[in-house]
Design a protein around this nucleic acid. Structure first.
Length: 257
DNA sequence: ATGGTTGTTGGACAA
């Protein structure tokens, strides 16, 4: 089972990029973030014509997530529990071939000092609680997406410059570790403990891509039952270098059948 | 230190 995650920064703007990449990469499941369109504006016909079943949670202008699969997806959940009126489209979860899979778009949280940062932390608390309930099922669980979390100093080109940023400050990293400490592994770092300069995002500004000034913020968290089947996790940098690219690139996970 | 870019949308806001 090959599962990819990709923050596409507008699915309509990026449709040719995504279609072209899918034809080459051939994942079984694609998790999308930052659709930037309402559910009804998602290019459903294009994906269905290409053989994809689409679970879409959209929102006007911002956010938006989707789970695309070649096989049937069942028991779809369109929000993270515990929201209490949270209308931001940041979570979709479904079962594909016995694996519980989520596409999530964790809040950015900047600037710290505004209500955006406590919203991020509260969202992470909700994710932690839900991740714990998923663990109790004792099934393979894959939580993939744009976490907006830089796990460690090896995951950012200039750690000092990012020390107070919402993606890297201690409180954010500690909360991320709390989720791992429930019993999840972060697939890429588990397989590549010493790899450096492995980024999944490069800002559009200041030539970040050309200078390889990137961040690793797109992750897969795996329950023990999924971790036992983990065979590969790689970042595919190729789409970031294409014309009209998203500022994120795709990360691909492989689980044994 | 500042500004640098992109997307949605038609002026900011988000990233």
């Amino acid at each position: 089972m090959r599962i990819a995650t990709w923050n596409v920064n507008s699915v309509r703007k990026r449709l040719p990029n995504v279609m072209g990449w899918l034809a080459d990469a051939k994942p079984d499941v694609l998790l999308l973030q930052e659709l930037k369109c309402e559910t009804g504006s998602f290019p459903l016909a294009d994906f269905e014509a290409a053989g994809w079943r689409c679970q879409v949670v959209g929102q006007k202008s911002y956010n938006g997530v989707a789970l695309l699969s070649r096989e049937e997806a069942t028991d779809v959940v369109d929000r993270l529990p515990g929201g209490d009126g949270d209308e931001q489209a940041r979570y979709v979860e479904a079962t594909v071939r016995g694996i519980r899979i989520a596409s999530l778009y964790l809040p950015n949280g900047n600037p710290v000092g505004t209500d955006k940062y406590p919203y991020k932390l509260a969202w992470m608390d909700r994710l932690k609680a839900h991740a714990a309930s998923l663990l109790a099922r004792e099934i393979p669980v894959v939580l993939g997406g744009d976490y907006n979390v830089i796990p460690g100093p090896e995951d950012v080109y200039d750690p000092a410059a990012w020390s107070t940023d919402a993606l890297f400050r201690q409180e954010t990293r500690a909360k991320f570790r709390e989720i791992l400490n429930l019993g999840y592994i972060e697939a890429f770092r588990a397989l590549h403990p010493t790899r450096r300069h492995a980024y999944s995002f490069w800002d559009y500004q200041a030539g970040s891509w050309q200078r390889d000034r990137g961040l690793r913020i797109d992750h897969f968290l795996l329950s023990p039952q999924a971790a036992d089947r983990l065979t590969a996790c790689e970042i595919d940098k190729s789409p970031r270098g294409e014309p009209e690219a998203s500022d994120h690139t795709a990360v691909i996970l492989e689980l044994a059948d």
